[in-house]
Write a protein that binds this DNA or RNA. Structure first.
Lengths: 234, 234
DNA sequence: ACCTGAACACCGTTCAAGT
DNA sequence: ACCTGAACACCGTTCAAGT
């Protein structure tokens, strides 16, 4: 009787490290990183929690594996970009950073996870090697390239700490005059800035206040321009 | 009979929000952020875990409070620095960032906690207002100052993601030739860089590889110089 | 080789109750 | 007003046992 193959809960495709990690990414994508528990992950795979331990050592190792999944996706996103590095290393690195950012926007939980990983995994080494290739094509010394890697930091991986959510209590119209007056007094520059910037660039997104993409690019270009200048001076 | 005041475990000084938050910082300083549990914190205060909930709403609120404690320490560290902003805004901001970094080095767990806070607390607003004051003294427009805040990001708060620990398995001398050969082939730029940089700056720290302080300052100056150039062009 | 059940040592948190 | 005990719903993880 081999009929149980299609009988629903019985004999599902066997677990594997790959399947566990993919499922983990999916769980985090759908429910956020706090949804990624060993027990919840197991359930999403229609398996008992303890079965996972046969394929990953523990939760830390699971997160390490998940981080590598993201880096690999990043390598794929970046693969089709490689063209004439020698002609425009700055543009190449810019494109690469923006590609990385696209990946991170698909997995909003990923930056936080990557930041907690400390080990240097093979795919990450590969990724950094690719960035160094761009620097060398541009003629930077290894010394400058090394500093540049640190300086660009998480930006070459596609994320910056976005600092703060849209607004603390943006729905409270109850900013009474007393509070406002005190803010004017104690935080004059902040208040003035908010007044000035808010009008600036029209109603492009919901709040029209801080456009992450714009700020990401601003910082990226600021560093790339600075590096170019340093490279020229070497 | 008021003698129980000195009788040891009885009638200790009563809890308060301040005492809870200070104790929380101390626990994290001594045992790392993972030591900061409601139960552990309570024990350090010689109190039951549930007593904490009278002074903080929950653990998130506790972390919010702890983050504010750090920002306030930061404001104190930065207070004695204020001098002639108009003459040298870049230097002023540089000093401020380095002061902030000193605070973060005293509380190594703090950057990770601050990064998870989303709300804009009063002390944080005050801190940002101070930075804006510097930008304005330097003649930057609010538009540029706003971009600058985003670009400098966590650097004005004294931290950068230090990326990676000293080494993944730095104690294994077992890097056999096969592995090394494969690395040379797949990661030529990384291998070459490591060879070149390692010798560079002598045996200053243990590994002599990545000096966080140096990299922090490199990135900081890179951005400040870039901003200065943009400000001059405005 | 791969998966599981029962159990352990931890979490944060509620709620009714004590002083 | 401030603190507590007992209990609940969750964690990650071990270990001996199943197939």
């Amino acid at each position: 009787m081999v009929a149980e193959t299609e009988a629903g809960s019985k004999s599902r495709t066997p677990l594997s490290r790959e399947r566990v990690l993919s499922a983990a990414v999916k769980v985090a994508d759908e429910g956020g990183i706090e949804a990624l528990t060993m027990r919840g992950l197991a359930e999403s795979l229609d398996v008992e929690a303890m079965s996972l331990y046969y394929h990953v050592a523990n939760k830390e190792a699971l997160l390490d594996g998940v981080a590598d999944m993201i880096i690999e996706e990043l390598l794929e996103e970046v693969a089709p970009l490689e063209t004439d590095l020698t002609r425009d290393w700055k543009g190449a690195l810019r494109e690469r950073s923006l590609a990385a950012r696209r990946v991170m926007l698909r997995h909003k939980w990923a930056p936080a996870v990557l930041e907690t990983r400390t080990r240097m995994s093979p795919p990450l080494l590969l990724y950094f090697n690719g960035i160094l290739e761009i620097f060398k094509a541009g003629g930077l010394s290894y010394d400058l390239a090394h500093h540049a890697l640190h300086a660009l930091g998480s930006r070459v991986l596609g994320f910056t700490q976005e600092m703060f959510d849209p607004a603390p209590g943006s729905d409270d119209e109850e900013v009474n005059d007393a509070v406002m007056a005190e803010m004017m007094e104690r935080l004059p520059y902040l208040v003035e800035m908010m007044g000035e910037i808010a009008h600036d660039d029209g109603p492009d997104d919901t709040i029209g206040w801080c456009d992450d993409q714009t700020e990401f690019i601003f910082a990226l270009d600021l560093m790339l321009d600075g590096l170019e200048r340093l490279a020229a001076a070497e």
